[in-house]
Write a protein that binds this DNA or RNA. Structure first.
Lengths: 136, 136
DNA sequence: CCATTACCCCATCGGAATAGTAGATTACTG
DNA sequence: CAGTAATCTACTATTCCGATGGGGTAATGG
């Protein structure tokens, strides 16, 4: 299941994508509009800033704003930053690969086969969706 | 991410599906073959028995065995028993639906839209795979 | 009766998710 | 320069769940 962090992060990005102009939006405004705990959202937005999606401005008139076009923000990328691996098992993940302790022969593992199929499809969907596709 | 419970459960089912005859297999044998903690596997197999996938026999010569044909065991069904909802969010799930606390308008929620698409695809894959498809 | 095996209850341990508190820092405004 | 609005940072608390193990009970077969 998706963590609230990811859910809130995507909602916040969508909210910012729907803003007509590029002026900074304070955390509190986003939190209120999307019904998110301010402090929790704060840490999420910080992460999204570090990851290159958002810019921030301090002081009066400050807040967060998108620094990329919504159509250039790939949801697979967002997902990996917020949630981590797209695959349901570490042994199926490209970016976060880890071998299973219990698994002797990965190539013939029934779970591996099934989850690879799931992963490939999920990845395709996330990569084919940009923030612009889902924000409105 | 998939819990070990689900991973072990599917591996155990696959192992039983690969048995040539229908004589009961002791938990310890399955655990050893698949490198799973005996006690943990015990609770998983019990759940699978309650759910109608397995039969059990006590005492000497006892163990667990499949009571359905592998080709009649649907992986979406197995997944729901072991892991729970297939959807990544409760508000997207059919069988485990729950409204989001924070979400005002579900129909226009960007996360909801995206996760619905992911869910539909994952479900299709799981429903199109039987134990017979993945066990060998 | 004895060995074997499934069944059942419960304790524990660790880590992740979520949220809150307190204060430092930065920047705009008048 | 003073005041205020906002981000930034670090620490803490709590709750919850995944995973595992201990120990005992019940059924079965020889």
């Amino acid at each position: 299941m998706l963590s609230k962090k990811t859910k809130y992060g995507i909602k916040a990005l969508s909210f910012l994508a729907r803003q007509e102009n590029q002026i900074p939006v304070p955390i509190a405004d986003i939190a209120k509009s999307e019904n998110i705990s301010i402090k929790f959202l704060e840490s999420i937005l910080l992460l999204l800033r570090y990851s290159g999606f958002l810019g921030a401005k301090k002081g009066k008139g400050g807040g967060y704003y998108l620094i990329k076009e919504p159509k250039d923000i790939n949801m697979a990328h967002v997902y990996r930053i917020l949630e981590g691996p797209i695959a349901l098992l570490p042994c199926v993940s490209h970016n976060f690969y880890e071998k299973c302790d219990d698994c002797v022969d990965e190539a013939n593992c029934s779970v591996h086969k099934l989850m690879t199929e799931v992963r490939d499809n999920t990845l395709m969907i996330l990569e084919n969706n940009t923030l612009a596709d889902i924000a409105f």
